[in-house]
Nucleic acid binder design. Structure first.
Lengths: 187, 187
DNA sequence: ATCACTGTATACAGATTAGTATAATGATGC
DNA sequence: GCATCATTATACTAATCTGTATACAGTGAT
């Protein structure tokens, strides 16, 4: 049971979030994680691989958490959509919230042929599709439009919350989501 | 009439947008701008100063453009709010749109004590206040809430449009804005 | 005890970065 | 013709970065 790989992953995730990805050197990561570069490069062949793994892990954690919450606490499909932003608020305001990786990563790696950009773009679409899935299950007519709008609000709120913690942006995002969902439901 | 300072500014702005700020070296900027580092450092004391000037210029350009559009094409205050996102769409889809600086900058410089982060955070707030001003003039009751929601949608749409050009995100943002404005108006 | 394995420690290579020092160029005005 | 000024060209420093090479320490199994 090594645990070192995970230690490096979470350390890198935190540093990327607080210092930025490009501004965080490999030396800093191993120093904070309490290991050496040799070990890091054994588990992750390059810094780029490490970045990709951090993104994958963060996305997986979020999706699993959200899916569990919705599965356990709601029964009807329409309820899932309604409560979506309640759980997003819970996630964003939780003390161990360390940002949404793909939003920052796409800003730091804007070139479309870059693997990091491609993964974060893909994750962004994946999240939008998840909302789309919830919307169609809830019998929303314009599921495509609503899911795009809700993902816009999500990204905007996370961006705002990242920019200034405790700004309350997520609260207004929640009410905006409710309005848009109601509007799309009675159509 | 030098023009060199402006040439460096616009070149840097384009490169920051397409390649990222941290990924764009000073050597690249002067090479593309067709000048030398000596000249760049004469006009801008450091790369950080250059970044700040690029942000200031971009924000100024956007605000002037938007303000002129609203002043010339609308008469009643409520009309301004209604047409806000029409002009934002025009701005975002224009061929010389090179992104919204403060959104990317805050992602690349997440540390709150960083001057670049502070400026971009300040510009984000300034834009929100501008919407707040439009909302109060239009006699919106919860102007604070609506302006926050609209700025969320704005940032989300720009983020999405930056991530994938021509994604159509701005179209759905526009209808979302209309719904939220109407909801806040009849309250 | 020896072997295999994981991780440490440290030094280094090679590339890239921001920023500076110095000399040369070219145009303008007097 | 001469001085002034902005700009260029080029070389350099010093720091930082990713990634690697090498020698060493500890641990567990047989």
């Amino acid at each position: 049971m090594t645990g070192l790989r995970e230690k490096i992953l979470t350390t890198a995730s935190n540093l990327f979030q607080t210092q930025g990805i490009n501004s965080t050197g490999v030396d800093t990561i191993v120093a904070v994680a309490g290991t050496t570069k040799m070990t890091l490069y054994k588990y992750f062949g390059s810094k780029e691989v490490l970045i990709l793994e951090v993104l994958k892990q963060g996305h997986l954690d979020f999706q699993n958490w959200l899916n569990d919450k919705l599965s356990n606490n709601t029964k009807q499909p329409s309820e899932k959509l309604q409560k979506l932003f309640d759980y997003i608020e819970e996630w964003v305001t939780s003390p161990d919230f360390h940002g949404v990786g793909f939003i920052k990563a796409s800003a730091e790696f804007p070139q479309e042929d870059n693997p990091v950009h491609q993964l974060s773009s893909q994750q962004s679409q994946q999240f939008k599709q998840y909302i789309h899935h919830l919307a169609t299950e809830a019998n929303i007519k314009d599921a495509e439009g609503l899911s795009l709008q809700l993902s816009l609000i999500f990204e905007g709120a996370v961006q705002a919350e990242q920019m200034k913690r405790g700004s309350g942006a997520i609260k207004y995002a929640k009410t905006a989501a409710k309005i848009l969902i109601d509007g799309a439901s009675t159509q």
